[in-house]
């Protein structure tokens, strides 16, 4: 890599000069042959490299094409999740037979049905062992809140779509 010039310039220059100097026999031809060999190897290597890169690209691209629709859906659903959260917060305070409250409850159920049809499932596992693939520990609980290493409180529900976690649940975990 310390060469000042790209390697392939050297043989090029020689090839161009060749027709003007027909008296170049013997050593000259030998040098040209070696240069040509060197150049051939280099081009072959380049071609193999590009071929390998392309194969890999094609393989990945096939995969990407089939996944990109889901990716788009996932990205959009992710942005909807805070809306779901807030709707649930609105419902936290019971209002008995208040028809507005009941109406909001119905809207919430409708939204959850839509999401469920798209394969979206909530992640909420209080009492179970903390799993960092599903949950994000935001705080430690106190030892009397449960078995060590279990989720004692789901601060914010998580969601997954199929096997992909859209949002990790925020949880508090019993120390230990």
């Amino acid at each position: 890599m310390s060469k000042k010039k790209p390697v392939d310039q050297v043989p090029e220059d020689q090839t161009q000069e060749q027709p003007a100097q027909p008296e170049l026999e013997g050593n000259g031809l030998q040098e040209q042959l070696e240069a040509a060999h060197q150049q051939r190897d280099e081009y072959l290597q380049m071609a193999q490299r590009v071929q390998a890169d392309f194969d890999n690209f094609r393989r990945r691209n096939r995969q990407v094409a089939s996944e990109s629709f889901d990716d788009g859906a996932r990205a959009f659903i992710k942005t909807l999740l805070p809306v779901v959260d807030n709707l649930e917060r609105a419902l936290l305070e019971e209002r008995g037979e208040d028809p507005l409250y009941t109406g909001v409850q119905l809207v919430h159920r409708q939204l959850m049905d839509v999401l469920s049809h798209r394969g979206v499932q909530p992640i909420s596992r209080p009492g179970e062992a903390f799993d960092p693939t599903l949950e994000d520990a935001v705080a430690q609980g106190s030892p009397e809140e449960g078995e060590p290493g279990t989720v004692c409180d789901v601060v914010l529900k998580g969601y997954k779509m199929g096997d992909t976690v859209l949002r990790h649940a925020m949880v508090r975990v019993v120390p230990g």
């Binding site: 903390f130 949950e135 520990a137 935001v138 975990v173 120390p175």
Partner: peptide, 19 residues
């Protein structure tokens, strides 16, 4: 983890507070 399993990256970050 307590069991000696190694976690690297985002997953390690998610459990940092509890461990």
């Amino acid at each position: 983890t307590k069991e000696g399993e190694r976690l690297v990256g985002q997953i390690a970050k998610r459990q940092a507070i509890t461990n």
